[in-house]
Design a protein around this nucleic acid. Structure first.
Length: 941
RNA sequence: GCCCGGGUGGCGGAAUGGCAGACGCGGCGGAUUCAAAAUCCGCUGUCCGAAAGGGCGUGUGGGUUCGAAUCCCACUCCGGGCACCA
């Protein structure tokens, strides 16, 4: 790919190109600079209290084997932004590491007989090389690898402290057990009753496990004080934490074994207590046995046994139909002293609230369905606003709207709104009544459960605890810390730690024989605090060096995928608060203060700003040949049948052509001349030979659908190949330009050509033997204006994570400069200034080519430590502006006017326009809106 | 069901109250070439019109405003999260 020395077309400008012989050769230039930067230590970051700091982190990868395009998509803009901040005068830290404990390593060991450590380290080596090819400014001196004892030993230490503080505890609870993964899982790792890794069903088991008391922090986790996070992420976390305000109310058991005992329920609607006509307890509720009367015992036992055998998935899958049995027992409703029957049903979950509910069938859909099915009493206590009172026999649904309380004794007549908690007058009145009558207590309940962190797996951080012979647990002694994962083990798919006597057997603090904990920690713990370890990866006195922490913390910008919203991002916030409360930041605070930095609330949250990138999907599948039958309906064709058939000929059906893409409701088929919208109704016959069995519209959509990249789909875009072909700078530019970063989208293998042309043009601009032909001061000012407009736009895009607009601004500058280069219309000084600005603006995005050109053009030092061009609004301002003239809001004429034009002058010019007068005609001018210099709008009728 | 985010050309997208479609891909026409690639020049929302020009146009319907892709109300569709959560 060598460009010719060119006497290229001279029209219309009349100038000549003087392009050099050599095109931009990314192969020789990019790796060369990567090496030089490394040797020069260009990206080392040091604490410097004289300079403002910026700590930027992009989520560290799991060393799965190869860096994929998604990593590049996530990391490149983060790197560019870190570089941009550095050029703007910040002392920037941008580190990288590997989240290297986890299941895939262990699976590789089982399947291929490779030790997880070997597999992991080989992958890390390969990925390190791939990351270098990106040309990112990672400070490799600060790299962390979480499977090294130097890292996980500190996780263990933090665990020991958490145990002492009671934040880490061993508890017996109903937990999620994955038979497929051979381990328990946290609630966050179970989606729709299946594990998030393999999608295999998870069952409920009572087990003794290690937990972190994240619920203690539920309220603080709902506040994001001092942070700038995407609203959807906060919404997801809030949703997950699930705070509900309500009350505990005690119902007293009437007779039988449990007579006099209280059954506590949680309710968010204490106002409806007077309508509570029965109670339901979960099958696992501890009082079930004693509530059950002898004549109901067989039925209840049968029911609870059956439900214990069902998985979470089964319980929720066959949803609608409620099941349950009567215990025979009764409890007293405290508000009116009425006895209500107590039932057992699995629609009440033992894990939420108190595992028991008061049922208000008139005003709760689930209770209503249950009451109707089992013929239980329904008592309405809300009179719907502006309607007839509810009539029990004719009700077909629970009434959940607003109105006025009725049949509710002391709170009769009080208004019920749609508001939650005390903001609802009826709820407030009920809470006050409960308090005054000692019948219940106002409370807050959370959906969030404590974090189950033990895993019955080998390749993870050891839990530094010892099981004593007497059944109690104690932390590993200081001298034995950290507990190092033994390497010489045999893999069978089950954790080998329990079968390794030299690991298992130890002594307790009294010298008695004891055993080590063989479970390891959830790998999400590793990523809880790695951004602290980056600060001082070799620090031996603690998890992080307070001297570094005082300067760098907190993380100023954190970027990564939104899929971590309720796992990593929530856990990391929790851990940060725990570390703070255990006093790890005390010294850090002192050092901050000593340097005159007020710690304030800075260390309450780990990440000041979070931004999420979208996902790169596989390239769209188009061009399948299809045969469609059906008939035209308006401008769309409604199909009765659609068949994918590569050999289809014209005449095989009403429409034969290529399937182009899926619109919202229609498929588009291109028959060679026009694009036809084809609607495929649910009942239409669909035949896709590639998908066996009966096909329908959904499979057709799926067939076309742009999917996540995966090896099995064969749609993986390999960044190494792209770098080889186009160079890292082109790939970086394309990834930053092609999508709205937060959104992502399908890969387009042709689109990258635009970025390649851009990079080639930059090379031409930077190397052209520029000759001023007929330059003028005006042209100089115009070019400088374009440059300053570009500075503004590039800067804004970088700051607001709208990287595509930054690249677009640079492409526009390229367009202007290409014309200037051809015409020679500016002075050599103006040209050099413009090139210098352009190179600096582009440096964060395309670091290699800009560095080469910067050096070649005789600048001292690296472009990456050059100062960002100072934006000057005066230089960016146009002196003439096209003013739009409107009549009744429609554009009718345009005029070039001085930017400084006054309101009156603009108005006069507008009224003087012939075209405007034509449109005004014989109408009367009612009003003139003058917004100089952009617009004048004349209202006439 | 509840909670978020979104709907703009053939495509990715720009414009946050003031010229809709910047920038790029693709397409069309032309130059160069034996030819192709690459490169260069021009056109490219849609309808009417020979043109000048005009009508329409940011999911749908309504509203606020001199003026709405942008603000408000209702609906609809797409994506995501949560979900017998009491």
């Amino acid at each position: 790919m060598v460009h010719k020395v060119g006497e290229l077309p001279t029209e219309p400008g009349g100038g000549q190109y003087h392009f050099p012989l050599m095109a931009y050769d990314h192969r020789s230039i990019e790796t060369g600079w990567q090496k030089r930067w490394e040797e020069q230590g260009l990206y080392r970051s040091r604490v410097d209290w004289e300079k403002p700091k910026h700590y930027a982190v992009t989520m560290l990868p799991y060393p799965s084997g190869d860096l994929h395009i998604g990593h590049w998509y996530a990391m490149t803009p983060s790197d560019a932004r870190a570089r941009f901040m550095r050029m703007r005068g910040f002392n920037v830290l941008f580190p990288m590491g590997f989240d290297s404990f986890g299941l895939p390593a262990e699976n590789a060991a089982v399947q291929r007989g490779v030790h997880p450590a070997k597999w992991t380290y080989e992958n890390i080596d390969r990925m390190r090389g791939q990351l270098r090819s990106m040309g990112a400014m990672f400070d490799w001196e600060r790299e962390i690898v979480s499977c090294e004892p130097g890292y996980y030993g500190w996780t263990e230490e933090i665990f020991r402290r958490m145990f002492e503080e009671g934040v880490a505890y061993r508890g017996e609870a109903m937990v999620n057990w994955s038979p497929a993964l051979n381990t328990v899982l946290a609630n966050e790792q179970v989606i729709d009753g299946k594990d998030e890794r393999l999608g295999q069903p998870v069952i409920q088991k009572m087990m003794s496990q290690w937990f972190f008391a994240i619920t203690k922090y539920a309220d603080e986790l709902l506040s994001y004080h001092g942070t700038d996070w995407p609203e959807p992420i906060k919404a997801m976390q809030n949703n997950w934490i699930g705070r509900s305000e309500g009350a505990f109310v005690d119902f007293t058991v009437e007779e039988g074994d449990a007579a006099g005992e209280k059954v506590r329920v949680f309710t968010t609607r204490p106002d409806t207590l007077w309508g509570a006509t029965f109670m339901v307890v979960a099958p696992e509720h501890p009082l079930v046995d004693r509530l059950t009367t002898d004549d109901h015992r067989d039925a209840v036992t049968a029911y609870t046994d059956a439900s214990s055998k069902r998985t979470e998935l089964e319980r929720t899958a066959d949803d609608k139909e409620k099941t349950g049995v009567f215990t025979g027992g009764y409890a007293t409703n405290p508000v009116d002293g009425e006895p209500v029957p107590v039932w057992v049903a699995d629609y009440v979950l033992v894990s939420y609230g108190t595992g028991a509910i008061m049922a208000v069938p008139a005003h709760d859909g689930r209770d209503f369905a249950f009451a109707r099915k089992f013929g239980l009493t329904i008592t309405p206590v809300i009179h719907p606003a502006g309607e007839e009172p509810l009539d029990e026999p004719t009700m077909t649904d629970a009434y959940v709207g607003s109105g006025v309380m009725v049949n509710s004794g002391p709170i009769d007549g009080i208004e019920v709104t749609d508001a939650k908690g005390r903001a609802n007058p009826a709820i407030a009145a009920a809470l006050d009544w409960l308090d005054a009558n000692d019948a219940g207590e106002e409370t807050v309940n959370y959906r969030l459960r404590d974090w189950l962190i033990s895993r019955q797996r080998y390749w993870g951080t050891p839990i530094p605890m010892i099981h004593r012979a007497d059944g109690t647990v104690e932390p590993t002694a200081d001298a034995d810390m950290p507990v190092v994962l033994p390497e010489d083990v045999v893999f069978s798919g089950r954790s080998p730690l329990g079968e390794l006597p030299e690991f298992l057997n130890t002594v307790d603090s009294d010298g008695n024989p004891a055993t080590r904990e063989t479970d390891t920690m959830d790998t999400f713990l590793c990523s809880n605090w790695y951004f602290f370890r980056y600060l001082s990866p070799n620090y031996a006195e603690g998890p992080f060096d307070p001297e570094e922490a005082a300067y760098w913390l907190p993380v100023d910008s954190y970027t990564g995928g939104a899929e971590h919203a309720v796992m990593h991002l929530l856990y990391a916030r929790f851990f940060n608060k725990v570390i703070r409360d255990m006093g790890f930041f005390e010294e850090t605070h002192q050092i901050m203060s000593a340097h005159g930095r007020d710690p304030g609330n800075d260390l309450d949250e780990p990440f000041k700003m979070v931004r999420n990138q979208g996902q790169i999907l596989g390239e769209e599948r188009i061009g399948d040949r299809v045969v469609v039958d059906g008939e035209m309906d308006g401008n769309r064709f409604v199909a009765t049948s659609m068949k994918v058939d590569p050999a289809a000929q014209v005449g095989d059906g009403a429409i034969v052509g290529e399937l182009m893409r899926r619109k919202e409701r229609a498929m588009q088929v291109f028959d060679g001349t026009e694009m036809i919208n084809v609607e495929v109704p649910e009942g239409a016959l669909v035949d896709i030979p590639a998908i066996p069995g009966d096909n329908d519209i959904h499979q057709l959509k799926h067939h076309l659908e742009i999917e996540r990249m995966s090896k099995s789909r064969g749609n993986v875009v390999n960044p190494d190949d792209l770098v080889e072909l186009y160079g890292a700078d082109t790939v970086r530019t394309y990834l930053m330009f092609a999508f709205e970063w937060t959104k992502g989208g399908p890969w387009n293998s042709k689109g990258i050509m635009g970025s390649q042309r851009f990079i080639d043009d930059v090379w031409k601009i930077g190397t052209v033997d520029y000759e001023a032909q007929n330059s003028s001061a005006d042209a100089d000012a115009t070019l400088l204006r374009r440059c300053h407009q570009a500075i503004d736009r590039v800067q804004n895009g970088m700051e607001s994570f709208k990287f595509n607009t930054s690249v677009a601004a640079l492409m526009e500058l390229r367009n202007s400069m290409t014309v200037v280069a051809r015409d020679g219309s500016v002075s050599i000084e103006a040209w050099n200034e413009a090139v210098s600005i352009m190179l600096r603006l582009l440096a964060p995005i395309a670091p290699h080519i800009t560095e080469q050109l910067w050096t070649d053009r005789g600048h001292d030092g690296s472009v990456h430590v050059a100062q960002w061009p100072q934006f000057d609004p005066a230089l960016a301002a146009e002196d003439t502006i096209t003013m739009v003239l409107q009549v009744n809001g429609k554009v009718r004429d345009r005029l070039d006017v001085p930017a400084q034009i006054t309101e009156t002058d603009a108005e006069e010019l507008a009224l003087a326009s012939e075209r405007i007068q034509e449109f005004i005609g014989d109408k009367t001018v009612r009003k003139v809106i003058s917004r100089p210099p952009k617009l004048v709008n004349i209202v006439a009728n």
